[in-house]
Amino acid sequence: MLFRFQDRLLRVLYPMKPLANHLLWLGVVVFPLCFAFALVRPQTSTTSLFLGFVFGLGLVLFGILVSLTRPEALPNTGVRNRLKRFWEALVFWGWVGCLGTVVSLGLKVFSFAG
């Protein structure tokens, strides 16, 4: 069931594959921009800066996910396809774990900031 969800999601996102590099670079550029913004405007709230970091990390994670997409599911036969599916599953579920961690951290920061 989990592999079917992974396969469907990766096939649905396949039309966005040309945007993968742009998403990755935009996400990477957000981090130095947040630091520069904090230096220029020291009175900026830490919640806003954290939101910028979460947004940048979200773009990087989404870029990684989009770069994994493919037009059809891989067949289950052959050692090479099985290794490729294993690697893809490892990266995909690692991505889901990172996303859950970032969302959890964001909710904690926003609940304590209020």
Results as ranks from 00 to 15, higher is better:
Leu49Thr: 08
Gly63Thr: 10
Met16Pro: 00
Leu26Val: 06
Phe86Cys: 04
Phe50Gln: 02
Phe53Leu: 13
Val54Lys: 04
Asn76Gln: 11
Phe50Val: 02
Leu83Pro: 02
Pro42Ile: 13
Arg85Ser: 14
Leu49Asn: 05
Val12Glu: 06
Phe35Asp: 08
Leu33Arg: 03
Phe53Val: 08
Leu24Cys: 01
Gly78Tyr: 07
Lys84Pro: 04
Phe35Val: 14
Arg41Gln: 15
Ala38Ser: 12
Lys17Asn: 01
Glu88Pro: 04
Phe86Thr: 10
Thr46Tyr: 12
Trp95Phe: 04
Arg8Asp: 05
Arg70Ile: 10
Leu2Ser: 04
Gly52Gln: 00
Gln43Tyr: 02
Val96Tyr: 11
Pro32Ile: 04
Leu74Cys: 02
Asn81Arg: 13
Gln43Glu: 14
Gly100Thr: 03
Leu26Gly: 00
Leu23Glu: 00
Tyr14Val: 09
Val79His: 14
Leu83Val: 10
Val79Ile: 14
Cys98Tyr: 02
Phe31Arg: 03
Cys34Gly: 04
Leu39Lys: 12
Val28His: 05
Asn21Thr: 08
Leu105Asp: 06
Phe86Asn: 06
Gln43Thr: 13
Phe92Met: 10
Leu19Trp: 01
Asn76His: 14
Leu23Asn: 02
Gly63Gln: 08
Ala20Val: 02
Thr47Arg: 06
Phe37Arg: 02
Ser45Gly: 12
Asn76Arg: 13
Ala89Cys: 10
Arg70His: 14
Leu68Val: 13
Pro42Gly: 02
Arg4Tyr: 01
Gly100Met: 04
Val96Thr: 11
Gly78Leu: 02
Trp87Ile: 04
Arg80Ile: 06
Phe53Arg: 00
Gly106His: 04
Arg70Met: 15
Leu59Lys: 05
Val30Thr: 13
Gly58Phe: 11
Leu74Lys: 07
Asn81Trp: 09
Val12Ile: 13
Phe3Gly: 03
Thr77Ile: 10
